[in-house]
């Protein structure tokens, strides 16, 4: 795929005029799963617009943080406040792309159509959405025959089908080749330019440098650092972040 084609304005869903769900405010958020402490005392403020990259070593709680923000998991402690709304109440205004795309046992087009129909949206947008992610030529193919990169692009098309205000991405490019990574980054960048707030979990420092407006660095279930990307990459404040950026093993 050479470039993510923009969604024609006439085909894009008109975003419902509703109370904004940003800024996001987390206070003292903790999560325990099966006795293990995953997140502990997380305080975080995210403003409107831009792309936040969530980074940190394995087990830092990045994916679980996304699930908490999206209302898929309830915190064991603390509060998550989407401008006065609980996460579950605003889930329909958000979309999450999982690390391993969960594709329905249907054709590529039917996967996108499923979401549009379920949410009562204009089903004629299927081909425009597939075109946007460069999969129009595979519309009739079984979704489970797609390559890893294509499958993730289909998951992105499905996520964008609802025109989400917040787009969560949980390591969508893990184990993909550079061309697929580039294709996905272009689609995400387009979404961001279109006003979608992006919250992106990644291990890839290069990717974070390319996309981030700000960086949240998690370490041992806590927010070790949160600040503008430029500051984070130029002068990380914590030892763990410094070592992470230097490519050293951080546990």
């Amino acid at each position: 795929m050479s470039e993510a084609r923009p969604l024609p304005a006439s085909l894009a869903t008109a975003r419902a005029v509703a109370v904004p769900i940003l800024p996001l405010r987390l206070r003292g958020v903790g999560l325990r799963l099966g006795g293990a402490v995953i997140l502990d005392g997380v305080d975080l403020d995210l403003g409107a617009g831009g792309c936040t990259m969530v980074m940190g070593p394995n087990g830092a709680g990045k994916s679980q943080l996304l699930k908490l923000l999206h209302g898929l998991t309830a915190p064991s402690a603390g509060t998550i406040d989407w401008n006065g709304h609980a996460p579950q109440a605003v889930r329909a205004r958000q979309a999450l792309v999982f690390q391993k795309p969960v594709l329905l046992r249907r054709s590529v087009a039917a996967n996108v159509d499923f979401v549009l129909r379920a949410r009562g949206l204009d089903r004629s947008r299927v081909s425009a959405l597939l075109d946007h992610v460069g999969l129009a030529h595979k519309a009739a193919q079984p979704a489970r025959h797609l390559s890893g990169g294509e499958a993730q692009r289909l998951a992105l098309a499905r996520a964008l089908a609802t025109d989400p205000e917040i787009l969560f991405l949980d390591e969508p490019t893990a184990s993909l080749d550079p061309a697929s990574v580039q294709a996905i980054e272009r689609i995400v960048a387009r979404a961001r330019e279109g006003g979608t707030r992006v919250i992106f979990v990644t291990h890839d420092i290069g990717q974070a440098r390319r996309l981030a407006d700000d960086v949240v660095f998690l370490h041992r279930g806590r927010v070790a650092e949160h600040g503008p990307a430029r500051d984070f990459f130029r002068q990380p404040r914590t030892e763990a972040a410094r070592r992470f950026l230097d490519g050293q093993l951080v546990v």
Binding site: K67, H70, R91, F98, V102, L104, F114, V115, A118
Partner: peptide, 19 residues
């Protein structure tokens, strides 16, 4: 396999059963 994705899509119980 589908549960988390379906919750993310905000499907109703009826839609989940049909899917």
């Amino acid at each position: 396999e589908y549960a988390e994705q379906f919750r993310s899509f905000c499907l109703t119980r009826r839609q989940i059963v049909r899917a």
